[in-house]
């Protein structure tokens, strides 16, 4: 466009130094400080006086805040109720805020409006040391190396290198050991469920009869005797089960799992196959089971298959049956590892 209208000129020509190429200047000169602009408080004594009063006021706010904090500390104790604790916290926090913020704001305002506003520049010194200093430093290092005779005393050198290399192990070994702690992944492949173990209610531990479940009811289940194990929380994290009764007409069952349910009662692992959150949001009308973490949705009426979300596998089903007294018991452990995938899962 510019070439077609030479009358308008090329805008970058104005900036080009005489020896520049293709319109690019070789260097820019330092434009220096912008011109100093006096403030209102520099020009008018009244404005100066006003700024001073503002600073005093901000300090006064701080003083009042501190006094308020102390008064609240003694006069409004936290007490026993939620309301009194909240009131105490609110008053202490407000006092603390005003006490600290008042000082900060006053100091900044003081510096900005009352102290002089002349722009100043402090140039950097060159980074390179003088030649004498550099020569002296090299000489010192050379003397030191010669004095220690590191080039000749081989055993000494070897001992030093060994010590330096070994010392970091005091940090590294416990660190790696604590991170791993237990490298046995086989325990993720099984849970504490065994044949004949009763299904009990979490957290009360009451055993469950098949007749206890009405259609649409949900039981959060732990294995019998969970609290007697060595690490109940570790066992619970794998063994929790969701027990649901559906109308048997709504239930679709795979051929090889026909015997795993009892009269419409199904039991599925509560550990999501995505990253192991407890899947527990059960919608009784749609038979959908939702994971609260990433919205994986499982269809309880159809083998807990995945309907939506990041989970890749259905929830493992716990085969159940009823004992002579009518209590629900497990037929066996889960037939596959529960929870998220891991490398050795199916080995």
């Amino acid at each position: 466009m510019n070439q077609q209208n030479p009358a308008k000129g090329h805008p970058s020509q104005d900036l080009a130094a005489p020896d520049g190429q293709a319109g690019v200047p070789t260097h820019f000169t330092d434009p220096g400080h912008p011109e100093h602009q006096p403030r209102q408080s520099d020009l008018h004594p009244a404005a100066n006086k006003r700024a001073e009063r503002q600073v005093v006021l901000l300090f006064a706010v701080s003083v009042l805040g501190t006094i308020g904090f102390l008064v609240a500390y003694f006069a409004v104790p936290p007490g026993e109720t939620v309301a009194s604790m909240r009131q105490s916290n609110l008053l202490l926090g407000l006092g603390l805020f005003l006490g600290m913020f008042g000082i900060g704001a006053a100091v900044v305002h003081w510096a900005k409006s009352l102290m002089n506003s002349e722009e100043k520049a402090e140039d950097r010194h060159t980074l390179r040391s003088s030649d004498e200093t550099r020569a002296a430093a090299v000489e010192m290092l050379r003397e030191g190396a010669q004095d220690s005779a590191i080039g000749r005393r081989g055993v000494l050198k070897g001992a030093m290198v060994s010590a330096l290399l070994l010392a970091p192990l005091t940090v590294v070994v416990p660190l790696v050991g604590n991170v791993g702690e237990d490298w046995d992944v086989s325990k993720f492949k099984s849970t504490m469920w065994r044949k004949g173990m009763k299904l009990t209610i979490d957290p009360s531990g009451r055993p469950i009869k098949a007749s206890d479940l009405t259609i649409g009811s949900v039981f959060h289940v732990i294995p019998e005797g969970l609290e007697d194990t060595e690490h109940p929380l570790d066992e619970k994290a794998k063994a929790v089960v969701l027990l649901i009764r559906l109308d048997p007409r709504d239930l679709t069952e795979a051929e090889d799992r026909k015997g795993w349910s009892y009269d419409g009662i199904v039991a599925y692992s509560k550990i999501c196959t995505h990253v192991g959150c407890p899947v527990a949001l059960y919608e009784q009308q749609t038979h959908h089971l939702l994971c609260p973490c990433h919205q994986s949705t499982f269809d309880v009426a159809d083998g807990a298959k995945v309907l939506f979300g990041p989970a890749k596998r259905p929830l493992p089903q716990l085969p159940i049956e009823v004992d002579d007294e009518g209590y629900l018991i497990a037929q066996s452990d889960f037939t596959e590892p529960v929870g998220p995938s891991f490398w050795e899962r199916l080995k």
């Binding site: 469950i208 009869k209 206890d212 009405t214 649409g216 009811s217 949900v218 009784q284 749609t286």
Partner: peptide
């Protein structure tokens, strides 16, 4: 009674006291 999407928590899941 487990209205709408909510499951039923009958007296066997949660007793009257619970």
């Amino acid at each position: 009674t487990g209205p709408q999407s909510m499951p039923v928590f009958n007296d066997n899941v949660l007793t009257a006291e619970e």
